Amino acid sequence: MSLVRAVPLIAALALAACNTLETATAPAPAAPVNPNASVATLDIPFGEPCGAELSAYKSVMDNDLRTGHVNKPVYDKVINELRPAVAACQAARSYEAIALMNATKRRFGYPVPQGEGPVRRRDLAGGT
């Protein structure tokens, strides 16, 4: 078979392979177990560096409650532990707020970022 005839054949086979892959369906995302769950309200200040981190963690917790990854009593404990962190953030004590939040994350098994950051030089729960 000449090279001129082989190229269209190879291209046709490649396209056929792509078409068969496209017909495979991905699994549908899991629907929230508790989509109407009552989530807590925290007055997180967004002008402080700690505000974004606290807000992100609260969003994770809200989502975990809605999807059933945590139950309501555990969610309530986490939110109650975050209240002092929110108060420290409101008082412009970002270092303290993030340290308190990271300690809560550790207690409940959530990952804590490692490394240097504007307010994460060290945290109270982790030492120096």
Results as ranks from 00 to 15, higher is better:
residue 7 V to A: 03
residue 14 A to K: 10
residue 15 L to C: 11
residue 15 L to H: 05
residue 16 A to C: 14
residue 16 A to S: 14
residue 18 C to P: 01
residue 21 L to Y: 08
residue 24 A to V: 15
residue 25 T to I: 11
residue 27 P to C: 04
residue 30 A to E: 06
residue 30 A to P: 09
residue 34 N to P: 13
residue 34 N to G: 06
residue 40 A to R: 06
residue 41 T to H: 12
residue 43 D to M: 01
residue 44 I to Y: 01
residue 44 I to S: 00
residue 44 I to R: 00
residue 46 F to P: 04
residue 47 G to P: 00
residue 49 P to E: 07
residue 49 P to C: 06
residue 51 G to N: 01
residue 52 A to S: 08
residue 53 E to W: 07
residue 54 L to K: 07
residue 55 S to E: 03
residue 57 Y to A: 05
residue 58 K to C: 11
residue 58 K to Q: 15
residue 60 V to K: 03
residue 60 V to T: 11
residue 61 M to Q: 13
residue 65 L to R: 06
residue 71 N to I: 14
residue 72 K to G: 02
residue 75 Y to V: 03
residue 79 I to E: 04
residue 80 N to G: 13
residue 83 R to Y: 05
residue 87 A to L: 14
residue 88 A to L: 07
residue 89 C to S: 06
residue 91 A to Y: 10
residue 91 A to S: 14
residue 95 Y to P: 00
residue 96 E to R: 09
residue 97 A to M: 03
residue 97 A to N: 00
residue 98 I to T: 10
residue 98 I to A: 04
residue 100 L to I: 10
residue 101 M to Q: 14
residue 101 M to N: 07
residue 102 N to K: 11
residue 105 K to L: 05
residue 105 K to S: 02
residue 106 R to E: 10
residue 107 R to G: 05
residue 115 G to P: 08
residue 115 G to V: 09
residue 119 V to A: 12
residue 123 D to L: 04
residue 126 G to D: 12
